[in-house]
């Protein structure tokens, strides 16, 4: 009795989780599937369900497309400008209107979206820019936030907790509030149009990571610092030789979160970068969509290419990732 109730409970739990995961994975699946579709298949005709499995035209051995006409399959010999198609049906030539025929489809992948996507943007340049910004901001965040966090966690000084609260308070400010003053500041400094506004702020400490690292540093027993002090460490020595090596999980989480944020960040590069030689991948993607035409196939192909490293990264760092979320007690 108790056992069967348990089974039902588990089944219910798994069912809900399964449904939710489908909801979350659906956009990704659509992106992947669309990246392999022909342009004409991306958006289904009104009243028809979206296509999930990419298809290609069926052709005969001479490379002519096969169509369905009047319930039978025919070879499409070509069309006039009027939309009148010449078909070869059972060895006889017939004519049919566009809407009367339907191209035969088979499961298949349109790889050309990928080659087109690479032609449409300077992928390697954009990748270099993105990686450069990621590297600099991750490094900056690790160095600056850990130093500040160390001070908040391990050095008693007057007003420390008040200042810490102030630092936390800056997290509560919506980004939009500081957007314009920051832009004004950077433009006065002459930094707009360079990577500086995207990198320098991260060398001045990031409140969320200061908080995360402080919490972690506080868990290191005070006696370790005392032992190190007697062993001959300076305050910086304790930070560098004792606390940092012990905080590897927290530092890894910080690096990972920061990297993910920078990899996908759109707004900042959009505001501060002006030359398309400087564009990051996220901004470059935007170029696939213009006011009149959107190249959905290549857009989805490139989106897949850009998302792929993150997914691979996630598989390798899953534990760090989840640890980080539990560590901070917050969503990353």
């Amino acid at each position: 009795m108790a056992n069967s109730r348990k089974t039902v409970k588990t089944a219910l739990k798994l069912g809900i989780l399964g449904l939710l995961s489908i909801a979350f994975v659906l956009p990704f699946v659509w992106m992947l599937s669309t990246s392999f579709k022909h342009e004409s298949r991306i958006f289904p005709p009104p009243g028809q369900p979206p296509q999930w499995i990419p298809t290609t035209d069926v052709r005969d051995d001479q490379g002519r497309t096969l169509v369905k006409f009047d319930g039978k399959s025919a070879v499409d010999l070509g069309a006039e400008e009027t939309g009148r198609h010449h078909l070869l049906l059972d060895g006889k030539q017939v004519e049919a209107w566009d809407h009367e025929i339907e191209p035969l489809q088979q499961v298949g992948l349109h790889w050309e979206n990928y080659s087109k996507a690479f032609e449409m943007m300077d992928f390697w340049q954009n990748l270099r820019n993105t990686l450069f910004i990621c590297f600099c901001t991750v490094l900056g965040t690790l160095v600056s936030s850990s130093v500040v966090a160390y001070s908040f966690a391990r050095i008693p000084w007057r007003g420390r907790d008040a200042v810490f609260v102030l630092v936390l308070a800056t997290m509560m400010l919506p980004y939009q509030v500081t957007l314009i003053p920051l832009f004004a500041l950077y433009s006065k400094l002459g930094w707009v149009g360079s990577f500086k506004p995207l990198i320098v702020p991260y060398w001045l400490g990031v409140p969320f990571y200061i908080f995360l690292l402080r919490q972690f540093f506080k868990t290191v027993p005070e006696d370790l610092s005392a032992a190190a002090r007697i062993d001959g460490c300076s305050e910086f020595g304790i930070y560098a030789r004792i606390i940092l090596p012990l905080a590897k999980p927290a530092l890894a989480t910080t690096a990972l979160f920061m990297f993910l944020f920078q990899w996908g960040d759109f707004l900042n590069p959009l505001i501060y970068l002006q030359d398309d030689r400087q564009y990051t991948l996220a901004i470059a993607l935007q170029q696939f969509q213009s006011q009149h035409v959107s190249a959905w196939g290549p857009l989805m192909a490139m989106s897949t290419v850009i998302t792929l490293p993150i997914i691979v990264l996630f598989f390798f760092t899953q534990r760090t990732f989840i640890q980080g979320i539990t560590m901070s007690g917050l969503k990353g």
């Binding site: 027993p221 006696d223 370790l224 005392a226 032992a227 002090r229 007697i230 062993d231 001959g232 004792i242």
Partner: peptide
Amino acid sequence: PKNRDIAMVFQNYALY
């Protein structure tokens, strides 16, 4: 502490 020429053993060992 480092210049006092002392060594200390802690209750929780305080090993690195």
